[in-house]
Simulated scan of single mutants.
Amino acid sequence: MKAIRLIFLAGLACAAMAHAEPITLTLAHATMTTHPAHLAALQFARRVEERTNGQIKTEIFPAAQLGSENEMLKKVKLGAIDMDVSTPNYMIKYEKAFAVVVMPYVFDNYEHAHRVLDGPAMAWLAPLAEKQGFVILSNWEWGFRNLTNNQRPINQPGDVRGLKIRVPPVAEVETTMQALGAQVSKISFKDLYAALSQGRVDGQENPLNVIYYNKLYEVQKHLALTRHVYYNTVHLISAKSWAMLTPAQQKIVREESKAAGDGMRKKIIAEEDELIAKMAAAGVKVTRPDLKAFRATVEPVYQEIAAYTGEANVQRFLKMVEDERKK
């Protein structure tokens, strides 16, 4: 009888979904259509539409068509855009605790980062984001950030000193580069390729997939695998949009968000060696510095981050990091 009742209830849920008014959700992101993030967005849209029998469609706006990263996130908060694929550094504006995620040299590897961010960090940060109007559906990928430049190979921290490096408008990344002795520049990302080719800056730092898919390697001579900061991305939906969905629809949206994010993770991690090889074949000189020296050089950055986000937040996060490291 219990099994029959469950089947009956499932049938009622499907019937209710089938007769509900169709919904079209907007999903914005800043990456190019060749990037794994866009492929993940396409997968998410297709699977949600299939599983809801066409009741939820997703209109995707790639390549920052709906504004800058900050502008898109603000629109999600207001409900003007339903969903966004953003990075934690943009969430810092709304909740300071997110600053801990982008501390330098916190994670040992991808697996370690995923255990922390999918587990205890998500349980802590997701409710804080929801108070600000954002529902975090799942973590997607971005990658470890690496350093490129046109002046010299980088093998030790001292090699960074004096280089003019473009950084995103993120205090934690800026402070990390300054600790290594770089002169930082905050040129917008859309102007970065031109700035590198014209010599207005010596270099920049980004994950390998960003360097490759945005063709930044075409105007850079050296790539150093410094892996100085790990970035994930978060697939967000406006709390206002989330409230429009039925519990059954919410379950599907969350499940397909995670499935798309898992696929993106696998692709980005699996292709890193291939991207390095492709850039090397194009003439980029690749170095693999000893990261222990870099980690020691940027240790003072932790105190600066603690002064901004709070010592308690830093210690709470570092405990999560250490607990997951032991597993």
Rank of each mutant, 00 (worst) to 15 (best):
M1D: 13
I4S: 11
L6N: 13
L6V: 15
I7S: 14
F8D: 09
A13C: 10
M17D: 06
H19Y: 08
A20F: 02
E21P: 00
T24W: 01
H29W: 07
T31W: 12
H35C: 04
F44K: 07
F44I: 04
V48I: 15
Q55V: 03
I56Y: 01
E59S: 13
F61A: 14
A64H: 08
Q65M: 14
L66F: 01
G67T: 02
E69F: 10
M72A: 06
K74S: 14
K75R: 12
K75S: 09
G79A: 09
I81L: 15
D82W: 02
V85A: 04
S86M: 10
Y90Q: 13
I92Y: 09
K93D: 11
A97N: 01
V101N: 06
E111Q: 15
A113F: 01
H114F: 08
L117Q: 13
L117F: 06
P120D: 04
M122C: 10
A123C: 09
W124H: 12
K131D: 08
S138K: 07
S138I: 02
N139S: 08
G143H: 06
R145Q: 12
N146M: 05
T148M: 15
N150K: 03
G158W: 08
D159Q: 03
P168L: 12
A171R: 14
V173S: 09
E174R: 14
T175Q: 15
T176Y: 02
T176H: 01
M177T: 03
Q178A: 05
Q178Y: 01
A179K: 04
V184I: 13
S185H: 10
K186A: 00
I187K: 08
F189M: 04
L192K: 00
S197C: 02
R200V: 05
E205N: 15
E205W: 09
Y213R: 10
L216I: 05
A224H: 01
R227S: 10
R227D: 09
K240I: 02
L245H: 05
T246V: 05
P247N: 09
A248G: 03
Q249I: 05
I252T: 04
E255N: 07
S257V: 10
G263S: 08
M264F: 03
R265K: 13
I268C: 04
I276P: 03
A277T: 09
K278C: 07
K278L: 12
A281S: 14
A281V: 11
F294N: 00
R295T: 08
R295P: 05
A296V: 06
V298E: 11
Q303E: 14
A306N: 07
A307Q: 13
G310M: 07
K319Q: 15
E324T: 03
R325W: 01
